Amino acid sequence: KKTSWTEEEDRIIYQAHKRLGNRWAEIAKLLPGRTDNAIKNHWNSTMRRKVEQEGYLQESSK
């Protein structure tokens, strides 16, 4: 079943993607209940745009 993505999950994906790049299977290990494919789709459909537009979460990672 599809549940919506939480801010916490987005944060984990964002940090992991910065470190690992497009290694979705590795990132998926950090998110129980999410598949690598689901994460990749979420990144491509939602997060990548956010990151590019806003420099997503930069201000809170100090």
Rank of each mutant, 00 (worst) to 15 (best):
S60P: 11
N44E: 14
I39N: 02
K1S: 06
K40T: 01
T35S: 13
K50S: 11
G33T: 11
S45W: 10
E26R: 03
S61Q: 15
R49V: 14
R48V: 13
R48I: 06
M47R: 05
T3N: 08
K40P: 01
L30V: 04
K1Y: 07
N41F: 08
L31P: 02
I13L: 11
S60G: 14
T35R: 06
R11H: 07
A38P: 01
L30Q: 10
I12Y: 02
T46D: 13
Y14M: 13
K1D: 07
R34N: 00
E52I: 05
S4G: 08
M47L: 15
G21H: 03
K2Y: 15
M47K: 14
G33R: 05
L31R: 00
R11E: 09
R48W: 11
L31T: 05
R34L: 04
K40S: 08
A38E: 15
A38W: 05
Y56Q: 13
E7T: 02
K62L: 11
K62M: 10
R48F: 14
W5F: 15
T3P: 07
E52R: 10
Q53W: 05
Q53E: 14
G21S: 04
N22S: 14
Q58D: 09
E52L: 07
Q58Y: 06
W5G: 01
K2P: 06
N44S: 11
N44M: 13
Q53T: 15
L30F: 04
L30P: 03
I13F: 03
R11P: 00
G55P: 09
W24H: 03
R11Y: 10
I27N: 00
L30D: 04
E8K: 15
K1I: 06
K1E: 09
T46N: 07
E8M: 10
E7W: 01
H42Q: 02
K29S: 14
N44H: 09
E54G: 14
R11W: 09
H42K: 02
E52C: 07
S61I: 15
N41K: 07
E54D: 11
E9H: 02
L30A: 05
T3I: 15
K2S: 15
K2T: 15
L30M: 08
N41I: 13
R34M: 02
T35N: 12
W24E: 06
G55M: 05
Q53G: 11
S60I: 13
E59A: 10
I27S: 02
V51G: 12
S61P: 09
T6W: 00
S60F: 12
N37K: 06
T35K: 07
R48H: 07
A38S: 12
E52V: 12
I12F: 00
E54W: 09
E52N: 05
L30H: 08
T6M: 03
L31D: 00
Y56N: 15
E59P: 07
N37L: 14
Q58N: 13
G55W: 06
L57T: 12
R34Q: 03
L57K: 14
N44A: 11
T6L: 03
N37W: 08
D10S: 05
H42I: 00
K2R: 11
P32M: 05
P32E: 13
D10Q: 11
I12K: 14
E8N: 13
Y56T: 11
Q58G: 14
H42G: 00
A25R: 09
E54V: 09
Q58L: 11
E59W: 07
S4A: 06
M47I: 05
A28Y: 00
E9V: 03
A28W: 01
L31Q: 00
Y14P: 00
Q53K: 04
G33K: 12
W5E: 02
K2G: 12
W24Y: 04
R34A: 07
I13E: 03
D10V: 05
A38Q: 13
K50I: 11
Y56L: 14
Y56W: 09
M47T: 08
M47W: 04
I13S: 00
S45P: 02
I13M: 08
W43P: 01
N37F: 12
I12T: 07
G33C: 08
K2I: 07
S45Y: 15
E8H: 04
E54H: 07
E9Y: 00
K62C: 05
T35P: 04
L57E: 13
V51W: 11
I13T: 03
H42W: 05
K40R: 15
H42M: 02
N44G: 08
K62W: 04
W43S: 02
S61D: 11
T46L: 12
K62G: 08
N44P: 01
A28R: 03
T3D: 15
L31V: 09
K29Q: 10
R49W: 13
